[in-house]
Design a protein around this nucleic acid. Structure first.
Lengths: 242, 242
DNA sequence: CGGGTGACTCGAACGTTGGTCTAGTGGAGG
DNA sequence: CCTCCACTAGACCAACGTTCGAGTCACCCG
């Protein structure tokens, strides 16, 4: 914002408090809370999320990220210890985008359905986040923990405890993460889908069932997700009755 | 093997047909089918799997891989077009390690349980493979397709078709892949588990349920997997009856 | 007013590494 | 003698996360 300031200020870099050397007050950005804020951890994370959304994990580079913030690459290291920190923060940030319902539904199952769908939407908005099971770091950010708290307390209200609670938690976790990761990574172009289908058709004799139900294209991800979720929830309910 | 040959042959690199310059027949490895085989696609893939098992995805390098095969790095490109090819082949190879039952069980559900457990074992043996939902390439190797054929034909015998078949296929796929990826990536050291638990305990007020059921350590992965699988299968059976 | 302090930023550089291309080697078979 | 298979060294070139030391500026204390 206000890039004109920089033009006027000559070689001055466009940053929050830049242009302070200029004599004219009106061209100078006041220190307090106006104008473009200086580099903060929040701004870095926000930019990281945007960068990841647009270009994916591979393209997340400290230099690249700094460039987007119009800052020097090494400046980031004042606000953040390492690149992994940035990713951890970015992951947690997307759990903070959507707030969970304040009130708990009467039937805990409804809460779980809401949570799962909201979670899925968040993951589909940020496909790179669904690949994080590949990362070695457990999810422990505050926003994610809030989601986990919501989920586990709903499961407890549904009557689960101990190992069964853990099993249900992870089953749901895997379903959301797996379904979104699969969907995101299998978004084939029309051309790719055609080629794949062609290939499968040519092997019809070896894999008749797979070739008939084109398992790669023609997937209705929404209903696949919902159906799978219902299966899990039905099973959980049945378990608590026995 | 036979590294002595190389010593005798001087600066000659140790390879299948190396040492052919030496006059003595007995020191020379015959061309045909004896001795260390020349570089083949199979040998490359085999070495890639071993390398991935031992050192993980990050360490899979063309140079590294070639070194393990005692070959020049660029030689690989004669047998394989690109590094992605190597990975694709390696992934498919691990589905070829274990053969599926020839006979079909009376109850298709039993077949599915066997398949899921065998699949899971393969993934746990080769944890890097569970991270492949992150990759952009659909699984289409012959061995994997055979597994899919087995799975989908069992599901059809169970009475599923069309969208429901697809939904069930992907739900099971996600469960196996998700559960193994989670388990592999959340293998925390005792120290890490302690620190995580400590951290959660310190936030007990904010996340009481999560802190009480330590959701990070103390996970019984085996039963979590089995329970989740049962849930899905129960649901599938219930669906086909309605 | 002026010297210092500490928050904040930056450029340069380090050291490592990656996949892949080009041009070529040498031996075996025809 | 020639061709082709199998293989290779070397180079290209681009990138990465991070450290280091130096700088800049607003502000505080005396």
């Amino acid at each position: 914002m206000n890039p004109e300031v920089n033009v006027i200020a000559g070689k001055e870099r466009s940053r929050g408090q830049a242009g302070a050397g200029v004599g004219n007050v009106w061209l100078r950005t006041p220190r307090g809370n106006k104008g473009e804020p200086p580099l903060t951890r929040e701004r870095i994370v926000q930019a990281a999320v945007a960068l990841l959304d647009e270009e994916g994990m591979d393209r997340l580079t400290m230099r690249h990220l700094a460039e987007r913030l119009q800052a020097g690459a090494t400046t980031l290291y004042w606000h953040v210890a390492t690149k992994d920190d940035v990713i951890d923060l970015a992951v947690d940030a997307i759990f903070g985008e959507t707030s969970l319902p304040d009130q708990r539904a009467e039937n805990p199952r409804d809460d779980i359905v809401i949570l799962a769908n909201t979670w899925r939407q968040a993951m589909l908005r940020h496909p790179w986040a669904a690949t994080l099971p590949a990362r070695q770091r457990p999810l422990m950010g505050p926003n994610f923990l809030a989601w986990m708290e919501f989920l586990q307390s709903a499961l407890m209200r549904a009557g689960l405890t101990g190992k069964r609670l853990n099993a249900a938690t992870w089953a749901l976790y895997n379903h959301v993460m797996g379904a979104t990761a699969t969907q995101s990574s299998l978004q084939l172009s029309a051309e790719e889908a055609r080629l794949g289908q062609e290939y499968l058709a040519s092997r019809r004799e070896q894999y008749p069932t797979v070739a008939a139900n084109n398992y790669i294209s023609d997937v209705d991800w929404d209903t696949s997700f919902t159906v799978g979720l219902e299966l899990l929830l039905d099973g959980i309910e049945a378990q608590t009755r026995s």
